[in-house]
Amino acid sequence: MQRTFSSPIGMKAVMAVTGLAMVGFLIAHLAGNLLVFAGPEALSAYARGLRKIEGILWVMRSGLILSVFLHIASGIRLSLLNQRARPQKYAVKKRVKSTFAASYMLLSGLVILSFICFHLAHLTFRLTHPEFAALDPFDIYQMMMISFKSPVLCLFYSVSILLLMLHLNHGIASLFQSLGIWHGNINKFVQVLGAFLSFALGIGFLSIPTAIFFNLVQ
């Protein structure tokens, strides 16, 4: 076990499995958030419903927290090893098949991490908006309305989501390769799946702050 996970291939497998868990969370998170378009009652009912399965929720949360931690730790460890592997840089270097997303995974990942910290402070711990204290704790709808009327916050969320899209665009296809699933026609399917899922998740998440900012949600 130690030999597996201390090796770069083992660390890549850890990044792949934890990445997959986080993609699963994102799909569920987006499905819940899209209820904002169904109105305040639907969103509050969803928030209250989640409280009823607190036990299961904590198991999932623990898995998610562990995934985030392991994903970041393995990513940073691999990046440090990779930087050491080429001490002298090229004077001229081209990307041949590599995409922009693949070249800046660490950077996009670190920005997403800072976004997650802010997002937790904003809507989970509610430290950024004192006016949330006056609201019903399940009135997520109103909290979103207050938040995304601010152009600064709307822009920050949008940029972070675009970076998430970029990260997933490479990450989803890449996780299959890391787990050894990349041969024959599967690689083409995996690349299309990665592009589709990252795009769909990105558009889904972007739709919320954008719709609120432009008064498209009543």
């Binding site: 890549k12 691999l78 050491r84 590599s98 693949a102 890449s174």
Partner: peptide, 18 residues
């Protein structure tokens, strides 16, 4: 491979291209 100080694949596909 590790001991020799090579880096690790991040699936950018540049290797197969060249």
């Amino acid at each position: 491979m590790q001991d020799e100080g090579f880096g690790n694949c991040t699936n950018t596909l540049d290797c197969e291209a060249v």
